[in-house]
Write a protein that binds this DNA or RNA. Sequence first.
DNA 1: CCAATACAGGACTATTATAGTACCATTTTT
DNA 2: AAAAATGGTACTATAATAGTCCTGTATTGG
Lengths: 151, 151
Amino acid sequence: MIRIGKLTDYGILIMTYLARDPERLHAAQEIAQAVGIALPTANKLLKMLARGGLLDSQRGTKGGYALSRQPEAITMVDIIGALEGPVGLTDCGTAKQPGNCQRERSCSVKANWQRISQAVNDALAGVTLAEMTVPSQPIRIFARPLAQPVT
Amino acid sequence: MIRIGKLTDYGILIMTYLARDPERLHAAQEIAQAVGIALPTANKLLKMLARGGLLDSQRGTKGGYALSRQPEAITMVDIIGALEGPVGLTDCGTAKQPGNCQRERSCSVKANWQRISQAVNDALAGVTLAEMTVPSQPIRIFARPLAQPVT
DNA sequence: CCAATACAGGACTATTATAGTACCATTTTT
DNA sequence: AAAAATGGTACTATAATAGTCCTGTATTGG
């Protein structure tokens, strides 16, 4: 079904929760309770998100986590990438390539797959965390394609 | 990694192989050998593809499989849908909804997820089987968004 | 009319990836 | 110094996937 993992789904909920109060420092226990997942699971995800550079963390008694960037500057690709690695639909798309792929006609398919993966990647990169917090924001993934005006 | 199953990858190779000779009838054994997968696996996939309406089949000694439609009229969504069900990145996106999703803020996320799934779906629907057979056809998924001129 | 071939459908097993948990170390505050 | 909270890693259990096999049905050819 071309699905993302359940943990990634949780991770996005966590990020969404943090995006609603970006300034304050949130402890893992508070986050776990707010999102509705077990504490060990929240811990694991928070570590991965911090390791991926999406969260700043502070240890100690009054420690916790907070977004490292503005919610507008964090996209779905960032979160998914931090939790599941680079986006690629097939094994050909990413780094390694399986054994029966070196035939000449399969290679043509491989090239096309990489483009499709890129298209999916761009679709996910077009949605920011800030947009996810808003109930029914009109997402403009296709309306404003990949040629994002970085001007 | 937002990946499709290995079987689906094989399935697309099978469809690509059949698209190169759409008129003739191809036996499962021939297909398995050409694509480079085990016969039982090929059988399974061919059944699913035929059941999904993408292949016409004929039984008997001179039986086999052939595309039911032109390669231009079959998209990646058709194949993936036949082999893995409807495209949806989260459990929220498709039919059923998990237990801890009924909170008010999660619902906002859910609505956004459905749109993202739709975007991915459209990206996959923009690539036809005919394009997959060509080595380096420029795919225009984002160039021609979802507002497909059905005129 | 019988035998061989090939698809149809489903059930079953094995493998692999994911999810989830627990432990120990390190840092900061009181 | 003690408590609280994150950092890192290893481990176990669960679930999804991959792969195989068996029985039934239709078609061709002798």
